[in-house]
Design a protein around this nucleic acid. Structure first.
Lengths: 179, 179
DNA sequence: TAGAACATGTAACGGGTTACATGATTTG
DNA sequence: CAAATCATGTAACCCGTTACATGTTCTA
């Protein structure tokens, strides 16, 4: 029982190991990269990232470089970390979890003021339109000046399909609620 | 400070109040109903339901009937509960949260054995096909012998669109990974 | 020179998941 | 009479969110 930390590697920590394959990074960089790459379908916060990095370091899955300017600290993947990553991702992935407050509201449409529900949908429609545009733009930019990786191609495709689907649903919902 | 319970109404508890609009129910029934109606985009467990029901009862948002056979206990919405529901759902809903482990794996496609990833997608493809079929069947059954509510129409539509989108993405992903 | 972006973290809380524990009733 | 389903709950843990706290460096 040398390991005093009770918890095992979790999906969030495993992804951090994944990103460190691309090179050593600070916690800050990891937050930004993760948000950019997987934020679409795997939300995480910086608190989590720093907490997991600390645990990964304590367990030898990452190494920390010396403190640089601004207390900057670079994390590097170790061989143990690499195999922990492989182990994690060799397991059958669990089913997805979705928590969609707007859909909750929609599901109670019969007990909520229709005008309010329509407004909620309209507001959310804007953010989804913006997200779709962003994905399309980012995809274009990245394909232009570098060969896009398989991983990124797959996730961009999902993001775009998802947003398009949501927008279509919203249009149908708004039409349905006009009556 | 009569209320000793620190936490406020949360989305899960608010939905329980929503379901109780349809009539008084046991915790067990609520678990089943919630799973059927919103499980698709709002996962919850029975532990949560019983915990929230207890809190709702302590705070006068539901009333508990007498114990019946099998320790059965029926929960009934109170006027306070009704207005707490309305208050909750009059607020702008938060953005959706998605946690999709398979997409995490896909995003690291470049560091994972392609064959394994393909197998994962194929397995998940089966469950999504099954879900799609189930939604379509349920929708048919429900439209046939009762006028379907607006809420259910909207959520069925979302579920079907979502599953179709996922299946399309998976087909594209599998094709992409064959190379 | 002010504000944005960089950079690191801690503390407390809320709440979702898992495992455990128990027992009654219906149905094949 | 065995198995499935109905029915209720507790305890512990993990982990995600929010708020707090501090300070540096770049850039307009």
């Amino acid at each position: 029982m040398t390991n005093k930390n009770p918890h095992k590697l979790n999906a969030t920590a495993a992804s951090l190991l994944g990103f460190l394959h691309e090179g050593s990074m600070t916690g800050w960089d990891l937050v930004a990269l993760a948000d950019n790459r997987i934020g679409n379908f795997w939300n995480l916060t910086k608190s989590q990232v720093y907490r997991e990095l600390q645990w990964l370091a304590e367990n030898g899955l990452v190494e920390t470089g010396p403190r640089g300017p601004r207390e900057k600290r670079v994390f590097k993947l170790t061989p143990d970390g690499k195999s922990a990553f492989s182990d994690w991702f060799s397991k059958e992935p669990a089913e997805e979890i979705i928590r969609y407050p707007l859909l909750l509201s929609a599901s109670f449409a019969d007990y909520i003021a229709p005008a309010a529900l329509r407004d909620f949908i309209k507001t959310h429609r804007c953010t989804h339109t913006a997200r779709l545009e962003k994905y399309k733009k980012d995809l274009l930019v990245q394909t232009r000046h570098s060969n896009i990786s398989t991983g990124q191609a797959l996730t961009f495709s999902f993001g775009i399909r998802y947003e398009e689907m949501v927008l279509q649903w919203m249009d149908e919902a708004l039409e349905h609620l006009e009556k």
